[in-house]
C-alpha cells in the first residue's frame, strides 16, 4: 500500500526494514538513539538523531544495534569501515556532511580504497548517511553540499535523493550494496511529503529518473534542486516551453545515458546544483555532456549553482546564494532568446 509520508519517515522506514531483514545491519552515530545510559529514559529514546530521523528505532532494535557514539568522527567512522570489512553492514551517521573534515582519512584513504589496494580481496559494505544543504540558516559549517567531493573519489558511491520515494528505495539499495555509499539527505527536505509504498523495495544505484518529460530543453537537478527545476518547468509551460527535468539520483555511478538521451531530444542543457561551482557535479556533468553529447547541443551548456563562496548566515544573503526558479527562467530566456520568459 502506498501512502503519503515525509522524507524523514521514509528514511526511518528504510532503516527499520533493513534492520529487520539483516541482523548485520547496525546504526551508529551521535545521538542516533540519544540519552545512552540515562536511567530514567530506559528504552525510550531521548532524541533519535538530531533531526529525529532515527526516532523509535532503539525501542525495536535495542542499544546493541543502535550505537550512540562520542563526538569522535574519526573513531567511529573509521571503525565502521572495518566492521563493514569484517562482516557487519553498518550504517554510520555523519550528522552534517560538513563534519567530514573530522574523518576524511577514514572515508577517503581507508574505506574507499581498501578493496582496490587489497587486490579485490576485501569489501566494505558501509553506508554513511549524512545531512547537507543550505536554506536552514545554519551558516557556513552546517550548510554545505559536498557530494561533488565524494564523487571525485574512486571507490565511493554517492546518492542524493530528492523525494521520499527515492530516499527509501535508494537507502535500501545503498545498505544492500557491497561498496561504501555516502547517502546525502537534504535537511530542508525532511518534512516534505510524498507517496511511498509500505514494503521493502530498492532503486538501483546509477539509475536516474525523468521527473518531468519535455522536449524543448533539459534541466538536470541535484537533490532538492530537482524541485526548483520542476517549479521553473511549470512556469515555462505558460510560455509554451516544455522542459524535461532529469534527476540523476545517484552521482556515482552516474546515469550518463539518461542525460545524453534527454539532450539528444531537447538539444539544450541546464544543470541546477546548489553546491559551489568549481570542480563540482555541475562541471562534471557539463564536461560529460560536452564530451559525449556535443553533437546534440544547439546552445552552450549552462550551470546554475551557488557562487564561489561559503554559505552565508543571514537569510537575506542565503536566499540569494541558492538557485531559484527565477534564476532558471532567466537562463532559459537567454538560451532561447526570448525576454518575456523572465517576466512570467
Amino acid at each position: 500500500m502506498t501512502r503519503m509520508i515525509t522524507f524523514s519517515q521514509a528514511i526511518n522506514e528504510a532503516l527499520q526494514l533493513a534492520m529487520r531483514k539483516d541482523e548485520n545491519v547496525i546504526l551508529m552515530g551521535e545521538d542516533v538513539a540519544g540519552g545512552a545510559e540515562v536511567d530514567h529514559l530506559q528504552d525510550e529514546e531521548a532524541w533519535g538523531g538530531v533531526m529525529g530521523v532515527t526516532a523509535g528505532l532503539v525501542q525495536e532494535f535495542g542499544r546493541d544495534r543502535i550505537l550512540d557514539t562520542p563526538i569522535s568522527e574519526a573513531g567511529y567512522i573509521g571503525a565502521a569501515v572495518t566492521t563493514a570489512a569484517t562482516g557487519m553492514r553498518p550504517v554510520a551517521e555523519l550528522m552534517f556532511n560538513d563534519f567530514i573534515g573530522s574523518c576524511l582519512d577514514e572515508v577517503m584513504n581507508q574505506g574507499a580504497k581498501l578493496r582496490y589496494m587489497f587486490g579485490g580481496k576485501a569489501k566494505v559494505p558501509l553506508t554513511i548517511r549524512t545531512m547537507h544543504g543550505a536554506g536552514f540558516r545554519a551558516a557556513a559549517q552546517h550548510s554545505q553540499s559536498l557530494y561533488g567531493m565524494f564523487t571525485a573519489i574512486p571507490g565511493i558511491k554517492v546518492v542524493v535523493p530528492s523525494t521520499p520515494y527515492d530516499a527509501k528505495g535508494l537507502l535500501l539499495a545503498a545498505i544492500e550494496d557491497d561498496d561504501p555509499v555516502v547517502f546525502f539527505e537534504d535537511k530542508t527536505l525532511y518534512n516534505v511529503k510524498g507517496e511511498v509504498p509500505e514494503g521493502y523495495y530498492t532503486i538501483p544505484l546509477g539509475q536516474g529518473e525523468i521527473k518531468r518529460p519535455g522536449s524543448d530543453l533539459t534541466i538536470v537537478g541535484i537533490g532538492k534542486q530537482v524541485q526548483t527545476a520542476l517549479t521553473a518547468a511549470e512556469q515555462l509551460v505558460k510560455k509554451g516551453i516544455e522542459a524535461e527535468v532529469v534527476d540523476p539520483r545517484s552521482l556515482s555511478p552516474l546515469d550518463e545515458s539518461i542525460i545524453l538521451d534527454s539532450i539528444m531530444k531537447t538539444n539544450r542543457l541546464i544543470i541546477v546544483d546548489e553546491a559551489n561551482p568549481r570542480c563540482s557535479i555541475a562541471t562534471d556533468i557539463s564536461a560529460m555532456a560536452a564530451d559525449k553529447g556535443f553533437d546534440y547541443l544547439d546552445a552552450p551548456i549552462k550551470m546554475i549553482t551557488a557562487p564561489h563562496c561559503p554559505v552565508p548566515f543571514s537569510p537575506a544573503l542565503e536566499d540569494i546564494y541558492l538557485p531559484t526558479p527565477d534564476k532558471i527562467l532567466k537562463v532559459v530566456s537567454e538560451m532561447i532568446e526570448d525576454d518575456s520568459i523572465v517576466k512570467l
Binding site: D98, R137, A139, A140, Q141, H142, P312, F313, S314, L317
Partner: peptide, 28 residues
C-alpha cells in the same frame, strides 16, 4: 543576520567572533 552584526551577518550565532577583542570565534 544584520549588516551591523559583529560578522556583518555572515556568521550568525555559531560563528560569532570579534578578532580585535581576541575572540577568535564561536565554532560550528
Amino acid at each position: 543576520g544584520k549588516a551591523t552584526g559583529l560578522c556583518n551577518g555572515k556568521g550568525g550565532s555559531m560563528h560569532i567572533a570579534d578578532v580585535e577583542k581576541g575572540m577568535l570565534g564561536a565554532n560550528g
